[in-house]
Simulated scan of single mutants.
Amino acid sequence: MTYYEDYGPDRTRTLGPEPTLHEPVSITESELGAWTEVRGHARLHESEIGDYTYLMERVQLDYATVGKFGNVAADARLGPTNHPIDRPSAHHFTYRTAMYDLGEDDDSVFEWRADQPVEVGHDVWIGHGAIVLPGVTIGNGAVVGAGAVVADDVDPYTVVAGVPAEPIRRRFSTDVAERIEATEWWHWDHETLAERVGAFRDIERFLAAFAPEDGRQRGQTDA
């Protein structure tokens, strides 16, 4: 295994089709796509990450789906579990009851949590320490600033930041975003990505090769 020297001895340089896990991690009832990486002390519960998505250290996902090519920075949390504050007590003894030898657990709380999933699109960057609250949907190509608390849905290719998070600018103009979206490049296979990776280093080159002005996908054009 090879490492990036400038990022310390535990930063991998090469990944493979099988998920790369840096122990310790906690993964329960979750699915990981190809070429994914999960850094140490991350936790996934009833969640899914798409191909090429990586989770940095101490990321927590609960009832969350992250699309392909997701970039999730350290200490981010998606879908943090809510407490039922309409009860006399918000403490989890009222539903994790068996833990305290007080009777049977209340499964309705866990069902309630699962009914508020987080949905994150493809090519989304979640910044360091950001929190995405239950029930939020984040569109393709969006960016969430470090430390943001996202309580409302985020439109595709929109940059949000702050507490609560608010739009601060668009990543691309509406026209450019639509052209990129039309390519659905995140579904290209590994071989195609290898052939076309050069175009991903220059937006104008990418648009010219794969995203014509009329928005129709040009799937066979060489990069």
Rank of each mutant, 00 (worst) to 15 (best):
R87M: 15
R87F: 14
P88T: 07
P88L: 13
S89Q: 05
S89E: 06
H91E: 13
H91F: 05
H91K: 05
H92I: 14
H92M: 06
H92Q: 08
H92E: 09
T94K: 04
T94G: 01
Y95H: 09
Y95D: 04
R96Y: 04
R96G: 06
R96D: 14
T97W: 06
T97G: 03
A98Q: 12
M99H: 09
M99C: 06
Y100L: 00
Y100W: 11
Y100I: 07
D101K: 12
D101E: 15
D101C: 12
L102R: 14
L102F: 10
G103N: 09
G103V: 01
E104P: 14
E104H: 03
E104W: 00
D105T: 05
D106L: 02
D107L: 10
D107M: 10
D107G: 11
V109S: 07
E111V: 05
E111Y: 01
E111L: 00
E111N: 08
W112E: 14
W112Q: 12
R113P: 00
R113S: 11
R113M: 09
A114T: 01
A114D: 12
D115W: 03
Q116V: 04
P117M: 09
V118L: 02
V118E: 00
E119C: 08
V120T: 05
V120Y: 12
G121I: 12
G121R: 01
G121H: 04
H122R: 11
H122E: 13
D123R: 09
W125Y: 15
I126F: 09
I126T: 03
I126Q: 02
G127H: 04
G127V: 05
H128R: 13
H128G: 07
G129Y: 07
A130N: 04
A130Y: 04
I131C: 08
I131D: 05
I131W: 05
I131V: 15
V132W: 01
V132D: 01
L133M: 15
L133K: 03
L133W: 07
L133Y: 04
L133H: 08
P134T: 02
G135E: 01
V136L: 03
V136K: 04
V136N: 07
T137D: 00
T137R: 08
I138R: 02
G139I: 05
N140A: 09
N140R: 01
N140S: 09
G141W: 04
G141K: 10
A142P: 06
A142E: 05
